[in-house]
Design a protein around this nucleic acid. Structure first.
Lengths: 203, 203
DNA sequence: ATCCAGTCTGAAACTTGTTCTAGATTAGCG
DNA sequence: CGCTAATCTAGAACAAGTTTCAGACTGGAT
């Protein structure tokens, strides 16, 4: 049901897959300490035991690398969430719960979150496919929480707005311009759109 | 009513004010062509007829410079909007109108928009005060469109969510991952929150 | 008018992302 | 096994943001 598709363009050998993994691990590790700026390409390469040129062959830019790192982490979170689905009564509440849970997970690694989110919103067109993948995973997580199989276009719009709010609120919190309490309030607020756009609503 | 406050810390002399203006102008001009990456500090300095060190004295980083550029442009837009307030019946519609009008203005200068918005969301803590100023202006614009003097906390949350959506949708459009039509739909969707959180609503 | 402190200039230096090159290694194939 | 193309490595080189510094200039106080 969830897209697990890696772009299997050239099927990587085992050693290559291992290299890729080491690079992503090094990236997450360095990001976990100092955030975006601590992820320095030379250091990532060294930590991963790989030449700089090779790093660039696997990830054509620092932004690509960090967006891929985010993909990776999101995938983890998605499977984790599958194991313990949110328990609220109505969809809006379940989505808000899920997002706040994700939020608390990120709170534990604020530097990592910083690096990933900054990369995500800074990405230009050359990274669109990868950013799109991240967006698809996020959408899947939200739709899962809503328990929807066949969302209406209206609901998809609401989901997009929730995603927008999620990213932007995250940034606002990470740069110290909003408290966690405020983020929670805003998440709750935006989740009201789920009720407003539910098909039983008189539109 | 609207915050016009410049941080008058050291009152700039006339020549200094002129330099500042030249710098901002050069920044906007270069951004108007190639976007974020076309705003190169050495070029800005040269175009503004100022030494590189001076540029850095006025704006301590490229991000600061671009956020200040955004401040400047937003201020323009705010006064422009004051001259022709949106004409819709209900607040939600007026806000959506206003935002879409702003959107079309940015469409005319997509590169400039790209540079400003990318800088805004990429800004780290060291730029928080400046980013906050931008946020305050944006809030003022939205509240103006709503015609509210004394918003409730709920309404302020809705406004923040609208801002989040606005920024994030803008980015999505700028990086080619969403059409203008989709942006319009999402803006309309998020503006429903204005009705939902209106005080006459049974909460 | 003179002097002082702060400001501006021009240029070099430093940092980190990115590109390039020449040679070693590896993977797949006959 | 031996060949060939692709991949990997080490390291230099380049680009743009940022810092630094010595000297020239400006504006205001005495």
């Amino acid at each position: 049901m969830t897209a697990e598709a890696k772009p299997a363009s050239p099927p990587l050998t085992e050693r290559q897959e291992a290299r890729r993994r080491r690079i992503l691990h090094a990236s997450a590790q360095l990001a976990g300490r100092g955030g975006f700026e601590a992820v320095q390409m030379r250091e990532v390469a060294e930590e991963a035991g790989v030449a700089l040129g090779t790093l660039y062959r696997y990830f054509p830019s620092k932004i690509h690398l960090l967006v891929a790192t985010m993909q990776d982490q999101l995938q983890h979170m998605h499977t984790t969430l599958h194991k313990r689905p949110p328990a609220g009564q109505d969809p809006a509440q379940r989505v808000a719960d899920t997002l706040m849970r994700a939020f608390r997970a990120l709170q534990r690694e604020p530097h990592l979150a910083d690096a990933m989110v900054r990369a995500l919103t800074f990405a230009d067109r050359s990274v669109s496919p990868e950013v799109d993948t991240v967006s698809r995973i996020t959408t899947a997580i939200i739709l899962d929480a809503m328990g929807l199989e066949h969302p209406t276009p209206e609901q998809l719009s609401a989901v997009r707005v929730i995603e927008h709010t999620w990213h932007s609120a995250l940034i606002t919190w990470l740069s110290g311009r909003a408290s966690i309490a405020q983020v929670k309030i805003d998440i709750d607020t935006v989740c009201r759109l789920i009720d407003v756009t539910s098909p039983t609503d008189t539109h």
